[in-house]
Amino acid sequence: MSADTLSAPPRAVRFRGALLPLALFALLAVVPFVAGALGQPFYVSLFTRIMIFAVAALALDLVLGYGGMVSLGHAAYMGVGAYAIGILSFHGVDSGWLQWPLGIGAAALAALVIGALSLRTRGVYFIMITLAFAQMLYYTANALSTYGGDDGMTLWGRSSFSGLVKLSDARTFYWIVFAVLALSYLGLRRVVASKFGRVLRGCKENERRMAAIGYNTALYKLAAFVLSGALAGLSGVLLANHTEFVSPAYMSWVRSGDLIVMVVIGGLGTLHGPIAGAVLVLVLEEVLSKLTQHWWLIFGPLIVLTVWRAKGGVVRLFGGRA
């Protein structure tokens, strides 16, 4: 064995580890066809939404699962991305070439400022501060009466890409969101295995040790936070396009909590985990809410029990490797 392959896991393990992600993406890839065959276009819309939240959950997993930062305000970055689309659309700018980078950039900027302040602290403080700043953005959106205030506002339409692709077509949009999710997943796989990712994982496990070997840990954590905020912003961009509507509710703290639930129930610190978690949570919401309008009575205790008993999330049940 040569020095440069020392830490690579054996091929059989890598193959088994790839099975679950492949199955997940295969499931998502057949949804439009099944929905078409069943004559149920609603499923295309439901799974578009699921995949959008899966992107946000992936973003959160980078800071939560790999960086050990419990951010309780990630819906805010989604909201900033969505509002950037809404505000630009309101002022007649509907070009996606402009909207999308601005949406992502605005979310990254918000994450940079909030991250720089929050990362001065740790533990319970960090949780409270990320939540508080997210709530600040929530109230700010509420106060923007020009842009609908607490009612939110309807968009003129989805982003246009010089006529190259028509986002207004539900199936086209589905495949675009699918592609964004797949690229985010593959990209993050590289990132967490890279030198940067290794430093980030080290910071999660033992920040004091990482400082003692010469890393400016705050800087690496901040970079991860900004990257995560940008990706959450992208999911917000997609969400605004999907619903053709933006509202402060996108940034509510319950939304932020939902994202954490997805990541943890799916499997913290694995990248297919958050995707599985988004599918599971949103499908469960769909099913339970059909059963009873008081489905929170079931969902709440379910969360408590899962956290209490089943550490590691559902992907661990399938023997998947991180």
């Binding site: 419990v70 309780l72 954490i260 929170w296 969902f299 709440g300 408590v304 956290v307």
Partner: peptide, 12 residues
Amino acid sequence: VLATFGVIFFLT
């Protein structure tokens, strides 16, 4: 955070 979140959902 998660456990108390579950409690919030339930009690609300």
